[in-house]
Write a protein that binds this DNA or RNA. Structure first.
Lengths: 199, 199
DNA sequence: GTCTATAGATAGATAGAC
DNA sequence: GTCTATCTATCTATAGAC
């Protein structure tokens, strides 16, 4: 879990335990009893802090998507105005977030379908804002003739796919550091959009 | 479901219904009763054809991975010996398979963790064979100095990620045909590995 | 907030008549 | 192979004493 967003006490322990179990066994494969046992609270204490098991999942997924959007915004703000640098900054932040908070990213994307449509709707808004950030950068790069990319929408799908899947295969000790993966995938993103060399 | 692999009669209907439900609700979110109702058989008929719900999932996942491997092998055999053509053929087959059998691909990858390790092991072997095909092509391209690719393992991760994720977002009527996606992603793959122009 | 007890529904799986 | 009936376990969620 990203630092600072986790409530203290039983509520925070429940979220942490639920995240780990949802990532391992899936939402449907995890019981409220499992979560409470892992959080070391009584089997019914979850209902003191959340109305239902689904609300626990919703909170985790919301935290996941908001954390990603926050990091993408931060990266874009700190980048030089050159679309190439902006794309590199976005991809690096995207990949790092997925490697460093792999379980959160997995649950946030794989279990979104388990939420009711009403619960998922505001989360989809956050997710759409993140896509918008990247689309604006790519379109500006094309307009400035710095990118040679006939299918920008598919290019974005491809680039975000690389980062999303990293949450599944990346593990500390897999032979790469998150920074190496982020740097390499940022280079791949530049190749995909057909970025001109800087010099 | 790919043609020709589906048994006739109740067993085939059960597999078809289970695939749709696993894709929509997840393995843990689907009950045996749901499957039988959707397959229009009695609630206990599933146990005539399968020892357990997990065996239904295992069969679906096995079919999914074997179908993908079959298509990749076929594509590679039909390709010119130039690593660039081979990579294009593999990526096209990979993307087409994931677009045309999206539910199968989603279930085969997302629910693999729901299988016991003993059941998953032979399926992982099939999956490893598919990776091997692609790795051999990329390494040969590097050896022949047709590819400029300092991180071949990460390049393969990136390329397979594009195709895998396509199963999630692609839908008939999304504005692209499977062929368009396949052609575009094959081009992205060439860009990622830094393929030299042919002329 | 934490405990025991338990409601009410549903899960996977089985038995046996036909 | 199909049906009815059902076993046993487990699920989410609630009630109420402390």
């Amino acid at each position: 879990m990203p630092p600072g967003v986790l409530p203290k006490g039983a509520r925070g322990r429940i979220l942490t335990a639920a995240l780990r179990l949802f990532a391992d066994l899936g939402y449907g494969g995890t019981s409220v009893r499992d979560i409470c046992a892992s959080a070391e609270v009584q089997a019914t204490t979850l209902y003191v802090h959340f109305p239902s098991k689904e609300d626990v999942l919703a909170e985790i997924i919301r935290l996941g998507h908001e954390e990603l959007l926050r990091r993408l915004r931060e990266a874009l703000l700190a980048a030089q105005p050159d679309p190439r640098e902006q794309l590199v900054a976005l991809v690096r932040a995207h990949v790092l977030s997925h490697c460093e908070h792999a379980m959160l990213a997995v649950v946030a994307s794989a279990e979104l379908h388990a939420l009711s449509e009403a619960t998922a709707a505001p989360i989809r808004v956050v997710s759409a804002q993140a896509e918008r950030l990247a689309l604006d950068v790519v379109e500006r790069g094309i307009t400035l003739q710095l990118f040679n990319c006939p299918e920008p929408a598919l290019a974005l799908r491809a680039i975000s796919s690389m980062g999303q899947r990293a949450a599944y295969w990346f593990a500390p000790g897999c032979g790469k550091t998150p920074q190496q993966v982020a740097d390499t995938f940022a280079d791949f993103a530049l190749r995909i959009v057909g970025a001109q060399n800087k010099n």
